[in-house]
Simulated scan of single mutants.
Amino acid sequence: MASIRIETLTDASSGQVYAEVYVDAGSTPVLKSEAAFASHDDLLEQILQMCRAHFPDHSPFSDDPTIGV
């Protein structure tokens, strides 16, 4: 099993927010986004939307946006 940690950080020069993704307590990010978000909340919502779209709940009683129901 792997652990994934996503940190939202503020770019000192632009004041915009970016994300860094770490795997298994590593100290070097495996992914880093551009500093292109107005706030940590905006970036968090983008990350959650991506996760919901690509990792939907496949419970038979849940809505699945990937198939339109």
Rank of each mutant, 00 (worst) to 15 (best):
L44S: 13
D41N: 06
F37W: 08
T28W: 12
A12N: 02
L44R: 07
A19L: 06
E34G: 10
F37K: 00
S14K: 02
S14Q: 03
A19C: 09
T28A: 12
T28I: 15
D24W: 07
L43P: 11
Y18L: 10
A36R: 01
A35F: 04
F37A: 07
P29T: 01
T10D: 03
A19P: 09
G15I: 02
E45S: 06
A25C: 12
V30Q: 08
A38H: 08
Q16N: 10
P29L: 05
P29N: 00
H40E: 14
E34T: 10
L43I: 09
D11T: 04
A19F: 08
L44V: 13
S39R: 00
A25G: 07
E34K: 09
A36W: 05
S33M: 09
E20M: 13
D24C: 05
Y22I: 08
A35T: 00
D42T: 11
A12K: 01
S33R: 01
L31N: 10
G15L: 01
S14E: 00
Y22A: 08
Y18W: 05
Y22L: 12
F37Y: 10
S39H: 06
T28M: 14
L31D: 12
A35S: 08
D24Y: 10
S39P: 09
H40M: 10
T10Q: 13
L44D: 14
K32G: 12
L31Q: 10
A36M: 07
G26E: 13
E20K: 14
L31P: 14
G26W: 11
A19W: 06
A36K: 04
A12E: 08
A12M: 02
S14Y: 03
A35L: 10
E45C: 06
D42L: 06
K32Q: 15
P29Y: 04
K32M: 14
D24L: 04
E34W: 04
A36L: 12
S27E: 15
S33H: 01
D24F: 07
V23F: 14
S39E: 05
H40A: 14
K32A: 14
S33K: 00
V21M: 12
V17S: 02
T10K: 10
T28K: 11
K32Y: 05
V21R: 03
S39K: 02
E45N: 03
E45P: 03
L44Y: 12
K32I: 15
H40I: 15
Q16D: 08
T10L: 11
D41R: 02
A12Q: 03
V23T: 03
D42Y: 02
T10S: 11
T10C: 15
V17W: 01
S39Q: 07
Y22T: 07
L44E: 13
G15M: 02
Q16L: 13
A35C: 03
G26N: 11
D24T: 03
Q16V: 04
K32V: 15
E45I: 11
L43R: 01
T28H: 12
